[in-house]
Design a protein around this nucleic acid. Structure first.
Length: 271
DNA sequence: ATGCGGACCTGTTAGC
DNA sequence: TGCTAACAGGTCCGCA
């Protein structure tokens, strides 16, 4: 579900009620997430002021003087601001209650999400240490992408979805950026010339930026931290459009599986 | 070193 | 209408 734009939208939605506020209570109702919620996390977080809400890849980082809590939304997770009087519903696995009464509530039917503790240098946490550059940072360039692909025979789509190469590019935006760059998703990563890699890096940046601006992509039931749906779905050119005419050339779009993930592309426009 | 399949879960939808 | 199977936005891990 949430890809980088949805996570960023969530970050922007929940930051106003968390940043500069003291955690009054952490209420964990279900510890069995992707990884168990560590015992004692409540004690580490309670009484701490959340200085910043940051994002690294698809992790939300809640920074305190004591250390950093890491939240991942997995495939089906969401966080939203609720009133303290609102009773929890099914799959509402934890609440962050701040002094003053605002509640940020985490819901995740599939429980692929997580709530972890990263200590004082989160960048050294095993789940963060090996991540590649942020796709929206200056570090992420066509040159970098080209260099990272040298000698690699892996399909370019799987290459850009590899978090060690670039952080946080998921299935939707990998499909979309490859279409926009005119690159066949199955092409060997190491067999793409520098100018086309520049184009691809530019399109990854552009598609993510546009999606963030529109509040993410609401596919089924996603809602941002403010409860609003995202509006990027209308802009998707290939994702979930197998068989429909290509918006550029009108030939039917193709759908295949790559690494157990659906890939959508145009056999004519993408080479 | 790289690449693949399996694993973790539930909900929705397509097909019979 | 109801049951079953396939598939879904992520990504780590172990094995070949």
């Amino acid at each position: 579900m949430p890809e980088l734009p949805e996570v960023e939208t969530t970050r922007r939605g929940i930051a106003p009620v968390l940043e500069g506020h003291c955690v009054n209570k952490l209420v964990v109702r279900e510890r069995r997430l992707r990884w168990p919620v560590p015992d004692g996390l409540e004690d580490l977080l309670c009484g701490q002021v959340i200085r910043h809400v940051e994002r690294r890849a698809k992790y939300l980082l809640l920074e305190t003087a004591n250390g950093t809590a890491m939240v991942h939304l997995g495939m089906s997770g969401s966080m939203r601001i609720v009133d303290a009087t609102e009773p929890p519903e099914s799959h509402d696995h934890f609440d962050i209650v701040v002094v003053g009464g605002d509640v940020v509530r985490f819901n995740d039917p599939r429980r692929f999400g997580s709530l972890l503790w990263a200590g004082l240098s989160p960048e050294d946490h095993p789940l963060l240490a090996e991540l590649g550059p942020e796709p929206l940072s200056d570090e992420f360039t066509g040159e970098y992408l080209w260099q990272s692909a040298r000698g690699r025979r892996v399909a370019i789509k799987q290459h850009v979805m590899n978090s060690k190469i670039v952080a946080g590019v998921g299935n939707i935006y990998a499909n979309e950026s490859l279409f926009r760059a005119g690159i066949h998703p199955g092409r060997a990563a190491g067999r793409i010339a520098l100018p086309r890699m520049r184009k691809l890096a530019d399109e990854i940046r552009a598609v993510l930026t546009e999606a963030i601006r529109q509040g993410g992509t609401t596919l089924r039931d996603y809602r941002g931290g403010d409860g609003k749906p995202g509006y990027f779905k209308q802009q998707l050119l290939v994702y979930e459009r197998g068989g429909e005419p290509c918006k550029r050339c009108r030939k039917p779009l193709k759908q295949i599986m790559q690494g157990q993930r659906a890939t959508y592309y145009c056999g004519t426009c993408q080479r």
